[in-house]
Computed example of a mutant assay.
Amino acid sequence: MKSSIKRRKRAKVILTNGIMILIMLFYLLPFWYVINNAFKEKSYISLQPFTIRPEIFTFDSIISAFEKMNYTTTFLNSLIVLVLSCTIFVIVGSMTAYGICISGNKWLNYLYVFFVSLIALPFQAAMVPLVSLLKNLGLSDSYLGLALVYSAMFMPFIVFLYTGFMRSLPMEIMESARIDGCSYFQAYVHIYMPLLKTITGIVLVLRGVYVWNDLQVPLIVINDPAKQTLQQRLYVFAQSRIGNFDLVFAGALIVCLPMVILFLLMQKSFIKGVMAGSIKG
């Protein structure tokens, strides 16, 4: 009886691992296809799309794409937008959730329910009013305007995450802080924000990756070629070089490489943060 149970468990583990391996290969195949063909001349891509030999390996496509995309300037543009967006995400999202949780005001709770319901609102429905509002405020074609659009898109979800996490914290923390003479702002900065490291990390990773990889919003907001983001520049670069797959693959690789490197460096922290957040919730 025990041996049959062990065999069933072993078969279940093998089946689960097999499915996970297939899923992993499914996701890795496109990435390998890009890497493999980014270091070839165009003539070899159609002949050997999934393999590469040392004699045909070359950095020429990478160097050419780097120069023609003006990668350094465009990378800084994307970095500025990412930093501005993430700063607004954390400060506004955490302070909004803090006010909702600490005040205990029923009207704020009603406002929170309405705010969270905006998660279901598609961006396309608010796209035209947002762009019109940016033009009226003089923020069109600017880094701040782009960051504000991302904030409008993601703030309901971010407030939802922060509020759910804060509500799991005991109110005795605030009561003790007030007895010790802390103002509400001091309690927010010195007590609550350190406790929100886990959820802040999750917000930065989930929404930051989206901001970095997004193409739709920059195409709508940014018209100045000098302020284009990496994804926007890659789109223009690929459109102007239809058929030059060596340059397109090389451009795609150098655009996604920063996020891949960041994830590889921080994957342990990210996994720990997600697990801690799920246990805390």
Rank of each mutant, 00 (worst) to 15 (best):
M95W: 06
V274W: 06
A187P: 00
L79I: 06
I158N: 04
G164V: 15
I173E: 02
L219D: 05
Q231I: 00
S61Y: 00
L146T: 06
A226R: 11
L47V: 14
T74Q: 04
V255C: 10
P258Q: 07
Y150Q: 15
Q186N: 12
S46R: 09
Y143S: 13
D224T: 08
S168R: 11
V13H: 14
V92I: 11
Q48N: 13
F115H: 12
S4W: 07
F245N: 14
L84E: 07
L206T: 15
G273S: 03
K197W: 03
C101W: 02
K272D: 10
N17P: 02
V236I: 11
I80M: 06
L146A: 07
S240K: 11
M127Y: 11
G145I: 10
A187C: 10
L262F: 15
V128F: 14
I19M: 12
V274N: 04
D180C: 04
N136M: 13
V34R: 04
R207A: 04
M24Y: 06
S168T: 08
N244R: 14
F270C: 06
L215Y: 15
F249M: 12
L139W: 09
C256G: 05
I91C: 03
R8G: 08
K2H: 02
K106P: 07
F75R: 01
G18L: 10
L146Q: 14
C256H: 09
S240I: 02
S168K: 13
S278N: 10
I254R: 07
L137G: 08
Y192T: 01
D141L: 05
A226T: 12
I191Y: 11
V189L: 11
I254Q: 03
K135P: 05
S151M: 13
K2D: 09
G164F: 03
V189I: 13
